[in-house]
Amino acid sequence: MYDGGKIITGLIIFLALVTFPLWYTAASGDASYTPDPETPAQGNCIESKEYMNAWHMDMLDDWRDAVVRDANRVYVATDGKEHEMSLTMTCMNCHDDKEKFCDRCHTYLGVTPYCWDCHVVPNQQGRR
């Protein structure tokens, strides 16, 4: 082998970089953590759980556009029921704690939605 010292050093640096998730997670010890957002004990969400898991952000985006641009505040769900298009009034009427519901998955996945750039988090002391 020629210039073996330099090449082996380079390889070790490369391996250390690509195995970053392994040793980072081993050090933090949180690999098996899974978020459990607190859902209300009874009642159904306005759409199915599977749909909300994947698409709630699009629904809220559509709601915002409908309310702000078209002044349309009525959402007709798949089951035909009508709901008011409102994050803080409709969604958070049941899911009333942002930290125990929204934030759990968002933090887990590194998602930083910009809802709260404009909205005030309801039921927080001193901010209502």
């Binding site: 970053f20 998730p21 997670t25 953590y33 590194g110």
Partner: peptide
């Protein structure tokens, strides 16, 4: 994509 491979996310 490391956000899917680290917990907590740096």
């Amino acid at each position: 994509h490391l956000r899917f491979f680290t917990e907590p996310i740096p």
